[in-house]
């Protein structure tokens, strides 16, 4: 007898939670020597050194690992939703201009305030992402009726290109120092995460994901087709608007704390779908946990590979994600 969907959801969630915990633990201990771990575990305090190890883990490694996990969870969940709403298993949360909007916001903030207003980068990136989606969605609604998906994708590409052009314009007029900061931002960075950021991002992801999950069956109907969904009792327009807005907020919140990290929102949902099928009741928790584990692991690699220098985490996600994705495509 085949397991019920409920049982599968619970089982998959539990095992992926296990995977996530292992990844978090490995990430937290990577960079600490065996002796240090022993000291911590046995509690045989060797004065300042043990305390220093604790400080390093608690004030630097833990918040960045947690932020990476939360951002990964948010991006992957948003990816599931966008792939569903746009009916394209290869859609990416950045497809409809969110990344370009966020980047533009961040670049504007960096060139206007420099490092004088550090939080400004996050605030402006969030506002940029949301306004990009607002613009795209506004265009799609204005053309309400047929061809919705195409309108969203085309408008997204055009709005994205527009915002990219403005961003490049600002970039070309800014100094070398700003350029470097912008470049790092575009490649994603968790290195100086604070608990405050973790908390903000975690609240956004929890609220957003819960709203989405409470509508998981509706997302299932939506991906079968608009007419079918309508005949099965769905208010397609209203549901789609809800999904788009919540997923955009989720992505915007993630982008604002982490920069534009590519491939997480594309590869994780797709891989989870290949493993567990397209049912969003199973897929949403799987993507949440899988995305968290993937990005936390990527951040750990970015931190360790060229130690004590840091690599941009976006480079790691793309370098590991792209070949895996190609393999999946070919195998399929």
């Amino acid at each position: 007898m085949r397991l019920s969907t409920f049982a599968r959801t619970i089982l998959i969630s539990i095992s992926l939670t296990g995977v996530l915990l292992v990844v978090l633990l490995i990430s937290l201990l990577t960079g600490t020597t065996v002796t240090e771990v022993k000291t911590l575990l046995t509690g045989s305090v060797q004065g300042i050194d043990a305390q220093k190890t604790w400080t390093i883990i608690l004030s630097y490694r833990l918040p960045r690992t947690l932020l990476a996990a939360v951002a990964g969870a948010g991006l992957a969940s948003a990816g599931v939703v966008f792939q569903g709403v746009l009916k394209n298993p290869l859609a990416d949360p950045y497809l409809i201009g969110i990344a370009a909007g966020g980047s533009l916001g961040a670049v504007v903030s960096i060139s206007l305030f420099g490092e004088r207003w550090l939080l400004g980068t996050s605030v402006c990136a969030f506002l940029g992402s949301i306004s990009a989606v607002g613009l795209v969605y506004g265009l799609a609604v204005a053309r309400r009726g047929r061809g919705y998906v195409n309108t969203v994708i085309l408008a997204g590409v055009i709005v994205g290109a527009l915002m990219n052009a403005v961003m490049l314009l600002i970039l070309s007029l800014s100094g070398s120092h700003e350029k470097q900061r912008i470049l790092f931002w575009l490649m994603g960075d968790f290195s100086l995460a604070s608990y405050q950021q973790v908390l903000l991002a975690a609240v956004a992801v929890t609220v957003g994901w819960t709203l989405i999950y409470l509508n998981a069956n509706r997302l299932n109907l939506l991906i079968v087709g608009d007419d079918t969904a309508s005949h099965l009792g769905l208010n397609v327009f209203r549901t789609r608007t809800l999904f788009m807005l919540v997923a955009a907020m989720l992505t915007g919140a993630t982008v604002s704390v982490s920069g534009t990290i590519g491939f997480v929102g594309l590869v994780v949902p797709h891989a989870m779908r290949l493993l567990f099928g397209p049912d969003n009741r199973v897929l949403l928790p799987a993507a949440l946990l899988g995305g968290a584990a993937f990005l936390a692991a990527s951040d750990c690699v970015a931190r360790v590979v060229a130690y004590p220098m840091e690599l941009p985490v976006g480079v790691i996600t793309t370098l590991s994600g792209a070949p895996f994705f190609l393999y999946l495509l070919v195998k399929k």
């Binding site: 220093k52 400080t55 390093i56 100086l192 931190r303 004590p308 220098m309 941009p312």
Partner: peptide, 21 residues
């Protein structure tokens, strides 16, 4: 602190800064 960096202006690990103090 970053004497051993292989590039002139490296993005540096904050943990290591804390360790080297």
């Amino acid at each position: 602190v970053a004497e051993d960096a292989t590039i002139p202006y490296p993005k540096f690990n904050m943990e290591e800064v804390a360790k080297r103090d």
